[in-house]
Design a protein around this nucleic acid. Structure first.
Lengths: 150, 150
DNA sequence: TATTGTTATACTCTATAACTATA
DNA sequence: TATAGTTATAGAGTATAACAATA
């Protein structure tokens, strides 16, 4: 093999683009969180829906869809699974016979706490290179970008 | 319709999770960048590969794959398309008959500059809620997380 | 044995469209 | 007309596996 240079390629142009930085950071977090989520047989979305149901008992599927920017059709599938695992229940809303009110079960509560703690543990590892102040700053900056939604 | 409360759901638990924040911010950037990329008939990955070829003329497909964390099989398809659009060329490497050396064409250079400027323009809009210092901070914090790779 | 490039395939995630029942 | 929930389908995007040529 000829001595073809093995220096790392220059990515400076690309690295000046926020979309690239964001994608790489997102990929890394997703990759590190996946084993934890797998352990609980959860996806990011399933976990998010469970979290919202626990924080907002009685919420409807459509409200969840809007809050999480998930299509209604996608929410159905997620709720189906969470219900079949007895983590949440679907109950009819008295005032509106179109909608379902979602409530966590006791098992769902316990399960959620354990999953959330495991996720937060993994995230502490991911953010181990950052100080507490920096971690807070990152969250704040990300939320600014997110909230800039149409 | 009964007066079912229309307050926004409480997402505080979820919002304390970096993975959720990152996903929402990434979704937002991806959504805003998509029309710009479409205008140039590019995807994030195609743009990234073009950028790396321009910044590193003579680079091989495998080197690109490693630098961008893309599978080799995926890089093939991207390079195929960029080559068929006469934005880059594939040339045999003298020392290693397995590898190709990728070079941008003049048209590729011009095209890239225009695409990159359009993307940066869109990103300025996305980051309009942030000061220059905050924008730099965000990039720096994201790169810390990214570089924490296995 | 390991690496480069390649092809074909499968899988995951998500969006779209069309429908029903209710409002 | 608009909304809640549902179903089926389609499309991106990406990963996996296997292979030939070369190192």
């Amino acid at each position: 093999m000829v001595d073809t240079e093995k220096r790392a390629p220059d990515l400076s142009d690309l690295e000046s683009i926020l979309g690239y930085r964001m994608k790489r950071a997102y990929m890394r977090i997703h990759r590190d969180l996946k084993p934890v989520l797998d352990e609980f047989q959860l996806t990011q979305r399933n976990f998010s829906v469970l979290s919202v149901v626990i924080g907002n008992p009685g919420i409807s599927q459509s409200e969840i869809s809007r809050a999480l920017a998930i299509e209604r059709s996608g929410t159905v599938v997620i709720v189906d699974e969470l219900e079949s695992r007895d983590l949440i229940t679907r109950e009819r809303v008295p005032g509106d016979r179109r909608a379902y009110a979602l409530h966590p079960t006791e098992a769902g509560q316990d399960f959620y706490i354990r999953a959330r703690d495991a996720i937060q543990g993994a995230e502490r590892t991911i953010m181990s290179g950052l100080s507490d102040a920096e971690a807070q700053q990152l969250t704040a900056l990300l939320s600014t970008i997110q909230s800039e939604e149409s």
